[in-house]
Amino acid sequence: MEGTNLTLKDLPVQPAPPVMPWREFADWIRMSQSHDIVWGWIRHGYIPSHKVGKHVVVNVALLTSQLLEQEWTL
């Protein structure tokens, strides 16, 4: 991969589901080696989530909306 210039156009595009199990979300954002970090984000409320029975799902639709509403300054 060294020396390769990838852009967003080069990545496969899959539409985001409105909610997904938190571990699948961690894999989806390429944090599969850091599930404990993602779980911490959820516990501290940085990522919108909801408990359904004994399962925790991430509200991807709300997270996307929140991120799009933020002003980004570099």
Rank of each mutant, 00 (worst) to 15 (best):
M1G: 06
T7F: 03
L8D: 10
D10K: 04
D10G: 00
L11F: 14
P17L: 12
P18L: 03
M20N: 03
P21T: 04
R23F: 01
F25E: 13
F25G: 10
A26M: 03
A26F: 02
W28A: 11
W28T: 14
I29Y: 12
M31R: 15
S32F: 04
S32G: 15
Q33C: 05
Q33G: 08
S34L: 07
H35T: 06
V38H: 08
V38Q: 10
V38I: 13
W39V: 03
W41C: 03
W41P: 00
I42S: 08
I42V: 15
R43V: 07
R43H: 10
R43P: 01
R43W: 00
H44I: 00
H44K: 09
G45M: 08
G45Q: 06
Y46Q: 14
Y46M: 14
I47V: 15
I47Y: 07
I47P: 00
P48A: 03
P48W: 05
K51Y: 01
G53N: 12
H55I: 14
H55M: 13
V60F: 04
A61D: 10
A61L: 05
L62T: 09
L62Q: 15
L63E: 09
S65E: 11
Q66C: 07
L68G: 01
E69A: 11
E71T: 09
E71D: 11
L74K: 13
